[in-house]
């Protein structure tokens, strides 16, 4: 972990400058520690990591598990009492599909929630100590660039040139 590397936090009022700063930082090999934004921004996501989020695999798998377990629950509990009820067969697949369907959705949604929490790092216990500014939920986009030895000046210049409204040195705990 590079927890103690000093860095600079640049605050931008618009995504154009932010994108430009990210592109240049990437080109110059300056490590991008974090990007903050009040809104999702597809271009920035794509720039940082073009791979799609893996959440959907969890949704799919959990949905499948839900479907199978719903039908299994219905069939299993019916077989415990092997009796015709209401003129319907004991293992009545047609109505059990409804049970399977509901559990598909339930498991899929719970799986999606857990996957989201896992990959987005929520609940985020570092929040109280993290590098953060309240403006990031208002109208500021932030980028935290790491400064290796002697790079501080060039990083600061990069942020200034791309139009950062404010630059703040950071040194995380």
């Amino acid at each position: 972990m590079k927890e103690n590397a000093p860095g600079l936090l640049g605050l931008f009022a618009d995504t154009g400058g932010l994108l430009e700063a990210l592109r240049q930082a990437k080109a110059q090999g300056i490590p991008i520690r974090e990007v903050y934004s009040p809104v999702p921004c597809h271009e920035v996501e794509h720039l940082l990591d073009p791979r799609p989020s893996p959440v959907r695999y969890v949704t799919f798998t959990m949905g499948l598990i839900g479907c199978v377990s719903g039908i299994a629950l219905a069939i299993g509990t019916s077989l415990i009492w092997n009796m015709i009820v209401g003129g319907k067969p004991v293992t009545a697949v047609i109505p059990f599909l409804v049970v399977g369907f509901e559990l598909t959705i339930l498991f899929g949604a719970i799986g999606t929630l857990l996957a989201l929490l896992f990959w987005a790092g929520l609940p985020n216990r570092r929040f109280f100590t993290a590098v953060y500014r309240p403006e990031f939920t208002l109208d500021r986009f932030g980028v935290w660039l790491e400064c290796r030895d002697g790079q501080a000046d060039s990083v600061r210049r990069l942020l200034e040139q791309t139009g950062a409204a404010e630059i703040q040195p950071v040194r995380p705990e």
Binding site: Y36, V39, P40, L122, P123, F127
Partner: peptide, 12 residues
């Protein structure tokens, strides 16, 4: 949940 609006959070 300590939401900070980082790009990683937004993406997922």
């Amino acid at each position: 949940l300590g939401w900070m609006g980082t790009m990683l959070q937004w993406k997922h």
